[in-house]
């Protein structure tokens, strides 16, 4: 019963956060310098045409009225029409979101899988030669800018060796029956490889170092000592007892990382011509396309908020002590 109430409370918070984000977005884009019609300045564009365009997008109305219309539309799931593309924002976002989610989750799963295993292993191998070599390597890769790393991988694996294509999600002119058929194809995987590798290398540092330090801490706890005293094999102690407990903060960081990663995708999507939400967001902001930029930001905010909710709930399952607190 209290579990249900807790979830309901969390959902109410979620709605409040999204409303706050939506309001900030609305104000932010309208306070930005410049006129959204600047993108259309052209000798053939008359004043009458500009006026029609302003009216078409409601830009001739007072700010508070625009805000009310915006909120009312949001409640109906209508994100408005893009100034730039003249198409519903929602449809465009839904076309691009799957590409971004595939990129984000596959790179994070690889980064976290790798980070957790290697982090646990490094904790096990503390003080050895492996630590002296691996830790600096991890720190170095973590410090590399994504843009630079992406360009280096492109130069080596695409332009020089020719193993992977340089951009997009499919070979030129290839057709697929559905999005699923595309995602299941070998072509797609080969297009996905380099951007995922770039993002995975960029994001493995956090889970790896977090896992290692958690493990070191957990290994000093009484129940681990107890397990050792019982004479369990060392790998069993590390994997089943210590690692399971050390995983908890890493799980939380995964949920938060999804949000950061979608932001970080801006760079990788540009380097690898990946048709995702990050690139769309940057274009929308630079074209003063308020509805599209608001919609894309809101979508990213929704993903982050939902992931946080999932992390909270998951935490309760992984560590029953949390839900009683």
């Amino acid at each position: 019963m209290s579990g249900m109430r807790q979830i309901a409370g969390r959902l109410a918070q979620l709605v409040f956060v999204l409303w706050a984000v939506a309001t900030i977005l609305f104000l932010m884009f309208r306070l930005m310098p410049g006129n959204p019609l600047a993108a259309y300045i052209d000798p053939t564009f008359t004043e009458e045409q500009q006026r029609i365009l302003m009216a078409r997008f409601g830009l001739d109305r007072p700010l508070w009225e625009q805000y009310l219309i915006y909120l009312a539309n949001l409640l109906r799931g209508d994100l408005g029409d893009s100034f730039f593309y003249r198409q519903p924002v929602f449809d465009r976002i839904m076309e691009l979101l799957p590409n971004t989610l595939v990129l984000t989750f596959s790179s994070l799963i690889i980064a976290y899988g790798f980070g957790i295993v290697v982090g646990a292993w490094l904790a096990w191998a503390r003080g050895g030669l492996a630590e002296r070599i691996v830790i600096p390597v991890v720190l170095t890769t973590r410090a590399m800018p994504e843009f630079w790393l992406g360009m280096v991988l492109l130069a080596i694996f695409s332009f020089w060796l020719g193993w992977f294509p340089a951009g997009g999600t499919r070979p030129p002119g290839a057709e697929y029956d559905s999005l699923l058929a595309l995602y299941a194809s070998r072509d797609f995987l080969s297009h996905l490889a380099l951007p995922v590798l770039t993002l995975a290398i960029y994001s493995q540092g956090l889970p790896l170092l977090l896992m290692r330090s958690n493990m070191l801490e957990v290994m000093r706890e009484d129940f681990v000592t107890m397990a050792r005293i019982k004479g369990l094999p060392r790998w069993r102690v590390v994997v089943l007892h210590a690692a399971r407990n050390a995983l908890l903060p890493v799980a939380t960081s995964f949920a938060i990382a999804v949000g950061y990663q979608i932001q970080g995708n801006v760079v990788v999507e540009t380097v690898f011509s990946w048709p995702g939400l990050g690139r769309e967001l940057v274009n929308a902001v630079s074209a003063s396309d308020y509805p599209l930029a608001q919609g894309a930001f809101l979508m990213i905010a929704a993903v982050v908020v939902v992931m946080n909710l999932i992390a909270d709930l998951l935490y309760g399952i992984l560590d029953p002590r949390v839900s009683h607190a």
Binding site: M151, L154, A155, S158, F159, G162, P165, A166, G167, G168, P172, G173, T270, V271, F272, S273, P275, R279
Partner: peptide
């Protein structure tokens, strides 16, 4: 036969794609 337009926002990548035959 066909005219295929690829969107490549990265200028260096476009040049690399031309040199490696991807465009």
């Amino acid at each position: 036969d066909r005219w295929i337009l690829r969107i490549v926002p990265n200028a260096e990548a476009a040049l690399g794609m031309l040199r490696s035959g991807q465009i």
